[in-house]
Design a protein around this nucleic acid. Structure first.
Length: 329
DNA sequence: GAAGCGTGGTC
DNA sequence: TGACCAAGCTT
């Protein structure tokens, strides 16, 4: 299959010259690999987009009649949360709040409650705040421009690009963890991307972005899907990959990750776990909850109080008189 | 730039 | 079985 790496037309590492920069000895190599040439890039587009046409999942926010609001809700929910867990909640939200203005009319607490166990409930608060801003400042329509999207609560670089691209077909570099991993392997020849997004990664992604707007939007979705379904973090299915023969990582023998340890996230015993327990109690109750009930979720009083204070400070919990607490009205 | 922020599934 | 991982954002 990929036994021959001398085929120049399929080699991503060609020799596009770098912009004149200060010659800085060995550190110049840290700028990353050279960008692929136009011919190789065009072939990549076709291979990945053709693969996408055949293998894309049939997700609700990709349906032809899915509006920008559906896309936006999905992007919020998908931040650090798997598709399988998002699907039922997304369906519920869109049925209950079909437009941003519908959500804006609810209390923030209802958004937090309907968020359920998706995790990172501050996202629910921010999505509610974004819906309010859309209703007030954008006539109830999800904005089309990247900078307008970026100004909304809870919308960062990735989400702004994703909504503009997926909902409106605009041309943006959409750089999520899937795409970063695909490019790390395909172009840089490493098993994983750096821990934090680098300028070199943005340069690589920008250089690969199709010039045509509609194709660029397709490419963004296709590379994400490739990362999610084939170029997976743990066990990549290179046998099913449309660009395996051009993958720098494969051509290098699929070397193991060497750099610094990938970020680990502890959970047991942390404030996050306590916050999760507290909020679970409040979500389950339609009435305000006495402090004594909340005290039952965690044995250690100092940490328990700190977690509750944090939830209040974040606006996820509202303290009432008489030691009662509830989701924000 | 690093740390903090939920939850559940997987190997 | 306990890391690791999942379409990030904010401070």
């Amino acid at each position: 299959m990929c036994e021959d790496r001398k085929d120049m037309s399929t080699d991503l590492r060609d020799s596009r010259s770098r912009a004149a920069s200060t010659p800085s000895g060995p550190s110049a190599a840290a700028a990353g690999p050279p960008a692929p040439g136009p011919r190789a890039v065009a072939e990549l587009h076709d291979l990945v987009i053709d693969w996408f046409d055949e293998n894309a999942r049939d997700l609700p926010w990709r349906a032809p009649d899915a509006g920008a609001w559906s896309v936006m809700v999905s992007e919020f929910m998908l931040q650090q949360t798997p598709v399988s867990r998002v699907l039922p909640v997304h369906q519920e939200w869109l049925a209950r709040w079909p437009r941003p203005a519908d959500l804006a009319q609810e209390s923030p607490g209802e958004a937090v409650r309907a968020w359920g166990r998706l995790g990172y409930p501050r996202r629910a608060l921010r999505l509610h705040a974004a819906a309010t801003a859309i209703a007030q400042r954008h006539g109830g329509e999800v904005p089309r421009e990247h900078d307008e999207l970026l100004a909304l609560p809870g919308v960062g670089e990735y989400t702004a690009a994703a909504v503009a691209s997926f909902a409106y077909g605009r041309r943006h570099v959409v750089l999520d963890t899937n795409v970063r991993r695909v490019f790390a392997r395909l172009v840089s020849g490493t098993a994983y991307p750096p821990n934090a997004t680098t300028a070199a990664e943005r340069r690589t992604a920008g250089g690969l972005l199709p010039a045509d707007e509609a194709t660029a939007a397709r490419w963004a979705a296709a590379t994400m899907e490739l990362g999610a379904l084939v170029c997976a973090a743990r066990s990549p299915a290179c046998g099913s990959c449309p660009v395996a023969a051009r993958c720098a990582w494969r051509l290098a023998g699929s070397p193991a990750h060497d750099g610094p340890p990938r970020r680990g996230q502890t959970y047991a015993g942390t404030d996050r776990q306590v916050r999760g327990r507290l909020l679970a109690v409040l979500r389950a109750s339609s009435d305000p909850v006495p402090q004594a009930v909340l005290d039952g979720v965690w044995h250690e009083p100092v940490q328990r109080a700190r977690a509750l204070d944090g939830l209040v400070a974040d606006g996820l919990v509202e303290p009432l008189a008489d030691g009662l607490y509830r989701l924000p009205a």
